[in-house]
């Protein structure tokens, strides 16, 4: 139990720092940045205290906001994704989730991909809508959200493959 807490604390700090110092200065094609700090929310243990989980997501989003001077957009998007996570867990993993025996290391790749893709897209749409904060630039907002989502999804998949513990 103790090791789980320490792993997630380290993951929290590491993702916030790398987001602020590396991933936010990529600026691919001028404006496309990935937001892989989402991995913390995506792969938080399924058996959890939901209130603590939502609060931690809020804290992570707020930390990123503080580094980027962006008000509360990351906090809002993170809290929303954390709250909506059980719905997507249920729809993508189905029965494995219902029995509460899910382990992110050994689920099918396809369902993992859809799970990451759904939550990332929602997160980014909320994020960029709040960032632009105007209805007149809706096309630009959606365009930014789409490109950044693709980047984030690719990066999340790569990071999970690199850092997954192989149990064969």
């Amino acid at each position: 139990m103790n090791s789980v807490i320490s792993i997630h604390t380290i993951r929290f700090i590491l993702l916030a720092i790398t987001q602020a110092l590396i991933f936010n200065h990529i600026n691919f094609l001028g404006y496309i940045n990935p937001y892989p700090y989402l991995l913390f929310i995506l792969f938080y243990p399924v058996k959890n205290n939901r209130m603590l989980f939502i609060f931690l997501s809020f804290l992570l989003g707020l930390t990123v906001d503080m580094f980027l001077d962006s008000g509360g957009i990351h906090a809002a998007a993170s809290v929303l994704v954390a709250y909506a996570r059980p719905i997507f867990l249920k729809s993508t993993f189905g029965t494995i989730y219902e029995y509460q025996t899910i382990k992110f290391n050994n689920v099918e790749f396809g369902s993992k991909l859809t799970y990451i893709a759904f939550l990332t897209t929602i997160h980014h749409i909320v994020l960029f809508t709040l960032e632009t904060f105007s209805t007149s630039k809706i096309i630009l907002t959606l365009q930014k959200a789409l490109f950044s989502s693709i980047f984030t999804i690719l990066l999340c998949i790569l990071l999970t493959i690199i850092f997954s513990r192989n149990k064969t």
């Binding site: 906090a75 809002a76 709250y83 904060f133």
Partner: peptide, 18 residues
């Protein structure tokens, strides 16, 4: 309710930053 509280706090920060 916790979700609603935290979400409105973040929206409040967002509006302030704009």
């Amino acid at each position: 309710l916790l979700f609603l509280l935290l979400f409105s706090i973040s929206i409040f920060f967002t509006i302030q930053s704009h």
